[in-house]
């Protein structure tokens, strides 16, 4: 099932991070399974241990199943100074989950992230590849409702 991804990359170790990115992005639960590690290990002829080591070194990779939409709220000082803590409270209230958890319907995972580089619009969060800025409680409620509405 990973053949389509592998066919895009030569079986060399420098493609490891790329392949892992793509496997994770294509998985509905946005994570890298044991089975995927085995497949990559075979394709690149490198050990499970090496892959697992790389996988757990980088914060964007997950070895546990996650939600369809990954919410990453910035916790860096520029956002903190502009009230990211209150936004975190709102997100927890709306989603009824803690940081690192996934909603029971599998729609959202709540994570914290270091600076997203959009500090002029702090507080900021990223949902998958979209960035949302100048967050307020009302805005967050609407963004989550809109995503739910789309699904």
């Amino acid at each position: 099932m990973y053949e389509a991804i592998f066919s895009k990359y030569a079986p060399t170790k420098d493609n490891l991070i790329y392949i892992l990115h793509e496997i994770q992005d294509q998985h509905p639960q946005q994570y890298i399974s044991e089975e995927a590690i085995s497949a990559v290990s075979e394709y690149l002829s490198i050990t499970h241990a090496h892959i697992y080591g790389v996988l757990t070194f980088y914060s964007m990779f997950s070895t546990k199943p996650r939600g369809k939409n990954i919410i990453r709220l910035c916790e860096s000082p520029p956002c903190f100074l502009k009230g990211s803590e209150a936004i975190l409270h709102s997100l927890r209230d709306i989603l009824q989950i803690k940081v690192g958890e996934t909603t029971p319907d599998g729609l959202f995972t709540l994570e914290l992230t270091a600076c997203l580089g959009v500090c002029g619009n702090a507080p900021v969060m990223m949902i998958n590849e979209d960035v949302y800025g100048d967050l307020t409680e009302a805005k967050v409620t609407k963004i989550i409702a809109d995503i739910k509405g789309r699904i």
């Binding site: 420098d14 790329y18 990115h21 080591g53 790389v54 070194f57 980088y58 914060s59 964007m60």
Partner: peptide, 25 residues
Amino acid sequence: IRQGAGAFVCGEETALIASIEGERG
């Protein structure tokens, strides 16, 4: 273009090189 995967230390040049080579940064 080569993409990182969320490790601040990869801004350090030798760690960055390790990351491009498919290693822990």
